[in-house]
Simulated assay, not measured.
Amino acid sequence: MTGYLTQRGEADGNLYQLVIPNREVRNIMTDRVMSLFKENVGKDGEMVNSFCNALLAGDTDKVEELKYEMN
């Protein structure tokens, strides 16, 4: 689901504020992430913790890796 982010405002060094400008796409993405969490929390809480930590750290490579493991 890449390609749906839009930059908002000015960049602050290497930091950008990104938004999903389409409500329908945002809802689909939110629903997908939530369903992945619901399916996998009971199976492997450690993986979910790793996913959340990667999100907080901005480690996009790790997020992508764990996303595919959750599928």
Rank of each mutant, 00 (worst) to 15 (best):
V33H: 07
E65N: 07
Q17S: 05
G3E: 05
P21A: 02
G58M: 10
E24T: 08
E69M: 08
C52R: 08
T2R: 14
V48H: 05
N22W: 02
G58R: 06
M70T: 00
E69R: 15
I20M: 07
F37L: 14
K43C: 08
I20V: 15
R26T: 08
K67L: 09
G42A: 09
L15N: 10
G45N: 02
I20P: 02
P21V: 01
G13M: 10
E64G: 01
V63E: 01
D44E: 09
N40E: 09
N14M: 12
Y68Q: 12
E39S: 13
V63I: 15
Y4M: 13
R32F: 07
G9F: 05
D44R: 12
L36A: 10
F51N: 01
V33Q: 06
Y16G: 01
V19S: 10
E64M: 05
R26E: 13
T6M: 13
T2I: 12
C52S: 09
E69H: 12
R8V: 12
V33G: 00
N49H: 09
S35M: 05
A54T: 01
G42N: 14
G13R: 11
Q7P: 00
I28M: 03
F37K: 01
N40Q: 09
M34Q: 06
V63L: 05
F51M: 13
R32D: 04
K38F: 03
M34K: 08
A11T: 09
Y4E: 07
L18M: 15
R23K: 13
L66P: 06
G9P: 01
D44P: 04
R26Q: 14
E65H: 09
E65G: 00
N22C: 05
D12C: 02
E46F: 01
D44K: 14
A54N: 02
L15D: 08
R8I: 11
N71L: 09
E10I: 13
I20T: 13
C52M: 13
R23P: 02
M29K: 10
L66T: 03
L66H: 01
I28G: 09
I20C: 15
G9K: 07
M47A: 10
F51L: 15
A57D: 12
N53K: 15
M47T: 13
L18V: 13
E46S: 11
M29P: 00
D59A: 06
G13W: 03
M34I: 02
K62E: 13
S35E: 14
V25F: 06
N22H: 05
N22I: 04
S50Y: 02
E46Q: 13
I20H: 08
N49P: 00
E24W: 11
I20R: 03
M34P: 05
R23Y: 06
V48M: 15
K62N: 07
I28K: 09
G13A: 04
D59T: 06
K67M: 08
K38I: 01
L18H: 08
M34G: 06
G9L: 12
Y4K: 08
Y16P: 02
D59Q: 05
R23C: 04
R8N: 05
K43I: 05
G3V: 08
